[in-house]
Write a protein that binds this DNA or RNA. Structure first.
Lengths: 337, 337
DNA sequence: CTGTTAGCGCCTTCAC
DNA sequence: GTGAAGGCGCTAACAG
């Protein structure tokens, strides 16, 4: 059926070894021989069976990208950067969804680890905390995207969430806001993102001359969706004194918040300023356009893949922790009061 | 290093074949034997090398999903449905991006075809027309997502674009709109989507009692992005008589249009009604929320994967053309004038 | 019901 | 610079 190395060898009247040498240009094959083999290669339209090659070499050139959900814009944009850079590096990307569930993250990691399908794993984990990850003895290298959970024993790449959150909060303070609410996540042990961002938020408030109330200005949410953002606004507005600014820990939350504020007859930014995280493409076109903390997604993909490939190549250096740049993109939703 | 079938066989004092039988529960292994093998399996923590299995069986359980761009919300949502259903069917999904470029689509198809990595391909093609696809003699089965281009020789699944577009246009006519503009694509030979949707749009107008002007109410766009939607609105408003409704051939176009209409001081829906296509998650939360044609994405993924698996299993029936349901979801952006 | 024997297609250690 | 043989780990024919 399919044409194999042997077929080509027979056609050219040489051994399989020689054909292999030509295909991968190994050693130095004599020009005459090379030409003859090449002719046979072309005539038979030979294409190597990558499966067999991988079995032999113990390397597939495939990396797994494990995300909570690919349809969430931020993860979609991240996946885009990963796929693009991987392809430039000669790798292909296998995408799998975890729903952010710990059990599923572990199961997929396990499969990836044992099946021999993938050379390495990029994991954007929501459910696994440091201990769970440290307990993981995987053959396949894993690089974490997003937060570094305490005690993690893996490479990790993300932005400095504390600093970013602090900067975003300061931006609102500078715009004259005094009752700034933080929105998103549960700040629990398995939600490092919101924990870190909350820390930055509080740090900014503490160093501000007119500090607002305490914890009551944090609205927890079960997830980072638009629906959760809308619900959070309803919760906040039901409290005695409504906020004059929202720091939402994702653009999706912020989008839901914008919608709900609109429904409640509040104007953005005059009544309430809104800032998001992730700087998703849609935020530029929202009405009003959304101020957001923009992580350098291309840089995340680049660092992560580079570290992963190093590990695949056998590097044994200690776990690394890479911070990529972020930028606060100021737009209409937080324009000066 | 890794524990193989042989190791287990040696440990249990049986042949590799028997172990294989236990692992895949083939034939009927005697309970006693099964228990002994299972014990060895557990003790050694054996996990099959899927690579070797695939090489042997000529099947990988991997399907490739070729999309223009995963970060585009519609494709992200589609990918989500595909990944989810594939995982339920025991398959994994390899995602690759084509940028909608013909050359890249062909190249990726070729790689998928020859590398033996994937059992089948799901292709959401923008650049390939019927002839180009028909000329493709691929070993690996391919199912097309989106439009069936004329003369295509492959299975295809999508919505009935003509009917859907006609229904959406009728919806605007019923809402009292008289100058309805169509927005999106180039309606050229390699852009079947806009061609079909334009056809439905025109059919609705023709059967309407008060037909508006002619072709001048179609705004071409280079792509289906928000930026293009905004630009299209600027173009349309520069014409002598501005439209009172927009039928945008994607929700992204519509989102850009909403933004631009807002910037130009026009109110939606009172001045201009807007309808989109795809019913992306963001559209529900837009301000105003966006009326959209909602294809049943889960059904697309389901049909496509089912057809693909049938082909992988050797089915040789003629090319099939499946229409999945769609629904016009009426929201604020087209509320009665 | 289980053991033996061949490969799947490729790369690579040995000889020449 | 080239040929021959072995094996990556698994499963599918054949025995027995």
């Amino acid at each position: 059926m399919a044409v194999t190395l042997r077929d080509v060898a027979a056609r050219a009247g040489v051994s399989a070894r020689t054909v292999s040498n030509v295909v991968n240009d190994f050693h130095h094959v004599s020009p005459a021989m090379r030409a003859r083999v090449q002719a046979a290669l072309d005539e038979l339209d030979y294409q190597p069976n990558l499966l067999a090659r991988s079995l032999r070499q113990g390397r597939t050139g495939i990396i797994a990208l494990l995300l909570p959900e690919i349809a969430v814009p931020y993860f979609g944009e991240l996946a885009h950067e990963v796929v693009e850079r991987a392809s430039r590096m000669g790798c292909t990307v296998l995408v799998d969804e975890t729903s952010g569930r710990r059990s599923r993250e572990l199961a997929l990691l396990d499969v990836a680890d044992r099946s021999r399908w993938v050379d390495g794993v990029l994991l954007s984990s929501l459910g696994l905390n440091g201990r769970a990850l440290a307990g993981l003895r995987s053959r396949v290298p894993v690089v974490l995207l997003g937060e570094r959970t305490a005690g993690a024993s893996h490479d990790h790449v993300g932005i400095d969430n504390v600093a970013a959150s602090r900067a975003a909060t300061q931006h609102l303070i500078d715009a004259g806001r005094r009752r700034i609410a933080a929105v998103g996540g549960r700040a629990g042990p398995s939600d490092a993102t919101s924990r870190l961002r909350l820390r930055g938020y509080r740090a900014a408030l503490r160093s501000s001359p007119a500090p607002p109330g305490g914890d009551d200005l944090y609205a927890r949410t079960p997830d980072y969706t638009r629906a959760a953002g809308a619900q959070a606004v309803r919760d906040l507005l039901a409290r005695t004194q409504p906020p004059d600014a929202l720091l939402c820990f994702s653009d999706e939350l912020a989008a839901g918040a914008l919608r709900e504020l609109h429904d409640q007859g509040l104007r953005v930014p005059s009544d309430v300023a809104v800032v998001g995280f992730d700087d998703v493409d849609a935020s530029r076109f929202a009405v009003p356009s959304l101020t957001s903390v923009a992580p350098d997604k291309a840089a995340i993909a680049k660092s992560a893949l580079e570290m992963l490939v190093e590990r695949v190549d056998g590097s044994r250096v200690g776990p690394r922790d890479v911070h990529v740049p972020y930028e606060l993109v100021a737009r209409e939703s937080s324009a000066g009061s």
